[in-house]
Amino acid sequence: MTSRKSRTGFLIVGLILAIIITLLISLNIGTMRIAPGDVWKTMIGQGSDQNQLVLFDFRLPRMVIALLIGSGMAISGAILQGVTHNELADPGILGINSGAGFAVVLFIYLTQGNPTSQVLVLPLAALAGAIVAAILIYLISWKNGVSPIRLILVGIGINAAFSALIIVYQLKMDPDNFTQATIWLSGNIAGTDWSYTLALLPWIIFLLPITFFKARTLDTLHLGDETAQGLGTHVEKERMLLLFIAVALAGASVAVGGAIAFLGLVVPHLARKLVGAGHKQMLITSALLGALLLLAADTIGRNILSPSEIPVGLIVSLIGGIYFIYLLMKS
């Protein structure tokens, strides 16, 4: 037990160091490369106006957004996998992402303007869409309680329905809004600024600690409904609370970063392989892994075809696809 805790501790420290190193690399490279010494001078207020503009107005907010979305989506996926007893569950497969995505696309369609000017409204719209999707999934899945298998199957159906509605409303848009919605749906954090960070930060700060506090409850639910009830857990009440947390995290993250696929699926799966099924260590590892993966993916997307950019969602999907092909080959 002590050896496993030590390994987990070293892993967490290693992930934190990897995030710091990736942050430093991401600050240095880009369309305009800035030497490490100049980065340091700029950070302490002695850099040029140009470097201050690039670092503080463009790169830093985007990097913070990547860390927040990565941890939020990873924790959302970990909760859903724990609640459904299915390692292939994630906000995308269950229809939560598409519900949030439909709300944002509908918002763009109805306003016919630039939604980035109303960034504080987007998380609320996405959260509303995610909640509607979650309520539909929960109500349709209900049959003397909610079966995890029914939850997954209904979620797949709801996902397909909302995905179809997204396409319908995209086809009704003018070319500019259609392009904007398409880029957003592919998963994109380009053009974000500190206002996006302020819109997302309260959700992450408030909901992540609650999730860590509920790690023991997730462990209990993993034993099965009957066993959890025998241990004194109010199964449906706890399941609804955990689902709401997962929906809120996914909805707020999708509102800012678009429909980034695979992140909530791959990261908890990998964290479980590294630290085991206990949710206390797994949730912390998932949050750090998710933050590191999305930050690294954004750094790659910004630079691999510079000055052009690849949306971060496509990079994450590529990494996720390769990972699952590797798992299939090893199984």
Rank of each mutant, 00 (worst) to 15 (best):
R4K: 08
R4H: 03
K5Y: 08
T8V: 00
G9I: 05
F10Y: 14
L11C: 09
L15S: 10
I19M: 08
I19R: 04
G30R: 01
D38A: 15
M43D: 06
G47K: 00
S48R: 09
F56V: 00
F58Q: 14
R62I: 06
V64F: 12
I65C: 11
I69Q: 00
M73C: 08
G82C: 03
T84S: 15
T84C: 15
I93F: 09
N97H: 15
L106G: 02
Q112S: 06
N114G: 06
S117E: 13
S117P: 00
A125M: 09
L127S: 14
S141W: 14
G145A: 04
L151W: 03
L153W: 09
I156Y: 14
N159C: 08
F162K: 05
A164K: 01
Q170I: 04
Q170F: 05
K172S: 02
K172G: 01
D174G: 07
D174M: 01
P175R: 09
T179H: 14
S186L: 14
A199L: 11
L201F: 14
L201I: 15
W203F: 15
F206L: 15
F206Y: 00
F212E: 11
A215L: 01
A215C: 04
R216W: 14
L218C: 03
D219E: 03
T220W: 01
T227Y: 08
A228I: 02
V235N: 05
K237N: 10
M240F: 12
A248S: 13
A250T: 14
G251V: 03
F262K: 13
G264N: 05
L265H: 10
R272N: 01
K280A: 10
Q281C: 04
L283H: 02
S286H: 10
L288F: 12
L295V: 12
A296I: 12
I300P: 00
S306G: 08
V312R: 10
I315E: 00
L318W: 12
G321Y: 11
M329L: 14
